[in-house]
Structure formats: C-alpha cells, structure tokens
C-alpha cells in the first residue's frame, strides 16, 4: 500500500506543477536547444537589444513602478550631476530590476497555487502556510530559474527573450552581481539532469519544510514533508535507476539554495538602501524580517 500511496502523491504533485507553472524544464529546453516551432527568442546582449526587447516583448516584460512618494525610477533630479548617457543606463538597469521583480511576483503567485494543490498543504494552519511560502518561495524560484538557464544565459519573457550572462554581468554594481551566483548554482544543479516530475517533488519538498522559523504546528509540517521526501526518494530511484546517489546529492542542494537566498536578500537590501528604486509590496512582505 505504501508503494501505491507514493505513486498517487507523485502523480498529484506532478500534475499540480504542470498545471500551475507557465514555464517548465521540458518547454525551456526545447526553446534553448532550438527544437521548437515557435520563433527563436530575441537575444538580449546589450542596452540596445534590451530596449528592443522592452518594445517587442512588452506584454511579458512590462514593469510596474512600485515607487512610493519618495520618487520613482524616472526621477531625473536624483542624479543631477550624472551625464545623460549614464542616466539612461541607470534607468535601463532600474527597469531591468523591475522586470525581474514582475517575473518574481508572477512566479510567487504560481508557487502559491502549486502549494495549495499539494495534498495536505491546505489543511495546515493558515499562518503556517504563510510561513512556508515566505521562506520557501525564493529557494523554489531559484530552482525553477535553473531550468531556464544554460551556461550562456537565461530565458525570459515566457521564452520570448534570452538574456545573456555576459550582459547581466556587465551591469553596474550591485545589479551586475545579482545573477552570477544563480548561474553558478544552475550549472551544478542542471548537471543532476532532473526532469519536471523530479522537480515538482523537489519544489514541494522545499515549500513543505519543517524547520522554517515561527511555525505553529511543526510536527504536522514535518509529517507532510516526510511523505513528500519519501515520495521523492522512491521516484528518483525509479526514474533514475542508474544514479543511486541522486537523492542524497539533491538534498545537499537545499543547503546551497538557502545560502543563495540569504545572499540574494542581502543584495536586494543593498539595492533598496542605495538605489533610487522600489520593491513590489509582495516581495517586501517576503523579505521583511526574513533572516
């Protein structure tokens, strides 16, 4: 009976994943390897192609301005001494930062719907559901991001654009430091060659994690986590029979993800403090008193 139980759970979680995420690894790999009938993504490798992408991929790259009354990204008076070209560059970087935020907000929304479809999640105390999302969404987000990355860049705008790693690296500090650690993680993570069914369980295990700070009913979350982790272990054995150490290697990635999120939260804090830009209210909620 346990065997049957885990198979049902695997199926339910995989279905929830396929239903709720607009992009998945199979889709991303088809686009990245050019094996799709849809148009090739627009390559964004400098400010000029970024601006072209902003115009042509407007629907999915549209960036909201979440500025409060202290002035938005377009407030030219903030940089009175900066030359015009540099100002344009700064504005483009701020817009790019907002595009990243929009994508994050969209993914957090998808992750929430996915979590709700994980059997048992909605039976948890509502405050615990909030806590699990608050601490889990960024780890999950960077896991999903790896599916859209190869060593040269990152698929954006629902596959309509491909932003090069070199271009992201070339941006002014701290923006230029933002993505490089994610590429390094993605290279190591993608070497595990997980498919979407594996990833679905891994993402569910990230979210249903019993050691998040402030959980009300730890043992209930641990029970849920245990059933998902067991399903993941059995599924990996069946799905990757030649790779017996895949499960422990994957569990090690959880520590890398935590480190990646802590580092990311620090960078976002730095941007918030030193740059004339604003943070989406949902992301503010997640980052506030996080670690």
């Amino acid at each position: 009976p346990m065997e049957a139980d885990h198979k049902i759970l695997v199926k339910q979680i995989h279905e929830a994943y396929m239903k709720n995420f607009n992009m998945n690894k199979a889709k991303a790999r088809l686009i990245l390897t050019g094996k799709t009938s849809t148009p090739q993504p627009l390559i964004i490798h400098d400010m000029e192609t970024f601006q072209l992408a902003e115009r042509t991929l407007a629907v999915h790259m549209v960036s909201g301005d979440y500025a409060e009354s202290d002035g938005g990204v377009g407030d030219r008076q903030v940089f009175p001494a900066v030359a015009c070209e540099e100002l344009e560059q700064r504005e483009a970087e701020a817009r790019l930062f907002h595009c990243c935020q929009s994508t994050s907000v969209e993914t957090v929304t998808e992750l929430t719907e996915f979590a709700k479809a994980v059997p048992g999640f909605q039976s948890l105390d509502l405050n615990d559901q909030v806590t699990l999302l608050k601490y889990g969404v960024y780890e999950a987000l960077f896991t999903l991001l790896a599916s859209c990355m190869n060593k040269d860049g990152l698929l954006v705008a629902r596959g309509g654009g491909f932003i090069t790693r070199e271009f992201l690296k070339s941006l002014r500090r701290p923006f230029g430091d933002m993505m490089e650690p994610k590429f390094q993680f993605a290279t190591r993570f993608n070497a595990l060659e997980l498919d979407d069914s594996d990833l679905a369980l891994f993402v569910a295990a990230i979210i249903c994690c019993g050691d998040r700070p402030g959980l009300v009913d730890v043992s209930l979350v641990e029970q849920l986590q245990e059933s998902i982790v067991q399903a993941l272990r059995l599924h990996l054995l069946a799905n990757h029979p030649d790779d017996t150490f895949l499960f422990p290697r994957l569990l090690q990635k959880l520590a890398d993800l935590r480190e990646l999120v802590t580092e990311h939260a620090q960078l976002v804090q730095e941007i918030k403090t030193n740059e004339d830009t604003s943070l989406h209210p949902l992301l503010q909620e997640i980052y506030r008193d996080m670690y």
């Binding site: 929009s102 907000v105 929304t109 929430t112 909030v130 949902l282 909620e285 997640i286 506030r288």
Partner: peptide
C-alpha cells in the same frame, strides 16, 4: 497577519499578479 497581507490574500483566493 497584517505583515503578510498579500500572502494571506493569495492563499485564500486566486489573485492574479496584475491585481496586486
């Protein structure tokens, strides 16, 4: 609860990111 208003909202009903 106030501190995580939007997360609560997302959990209790389907809110499109556009509405946030």
């Amino acid at each position: 609860k106030e501190k995580h208003k939007i997360l609560h909202q997302l959990l209790q009903n389907s809110t499109s990111p556009v509405d946030l």
